[in-house]
């Protein structure tokens, strides 16, 4: 048996082993894939259940009962709703803060002082 034959035999065994290894790992991956697909289907069903449960738990009637029992909140009155922000006492327009940079204390103080110094302009709109 010459060296050529020996190398060829070794190569055949290595190739065979590699092929079996590949086949085996592909099978494993396929099994895992089938499992994952089944899981994916189950998850979709579970999502539907969770969505329905979420809707039930967020149902206004359910929330109202909880609020009545555990909170002291009451339905809003129309006079508590405002159309313009400057109807709120002590309201300070924050837009200048953003314009003045990264909201440093210096600029914040300036804005507050400025708003204290002069009353807000009256709006024409109701």
């Amino acid at each position: 048996m010459g060296p050529k034959v020996f190398i060829a035999t070794v190569l055949i065994f290595v190739a065979g082993a590699a092929l079996f290894y590949l086949k085996y790992s592909v099978e494993q991956k396929e099994a895992r894939l089938t499992e994952m697909r089944a899981q994916y289907l189950e998850d979709q069903k579970a999502l539907r259940v969770l969505k329905a449960e979420w809707t039930y738990l967020n149902s206004p009637g359910y929330l109202q009962n909880l609020a009545r029992r555990y909170l002291t909140l009451r339905p809003m009155d129309s006079r508590q709703v405002i159309a313009w922000f400057d109807s709120v006492p002590g309201y300070i327009d924050v837009t200048p803060f953003k314009a003045a940079g990264q909201g440093s204390f210096q600029s914040a103080r300036e804005v507050v002082q400025a708003s204290m110094a002069q009353p807000p302009e009256a709006r024409d709109e109701p």
């Binding site: 129309s78 508590q80 709703v81 405002i82 159309a83 109807s87 006492p89």
Partner: peptide, 23 residues
């Protein structure tokens, strides 16, 4: 109950300043 949910803004029929005090 529904007007604030539907985005209808209240209109101040009264003089300005009424809401500040009502608040």
């Amino acid at each position: 109950r529904i007007a604030p949910l539907l985005g209808v803004k209240p209109i101040t029929e009264e003089v300005r300043g009424y809401q500040e005090i009502a608040y």
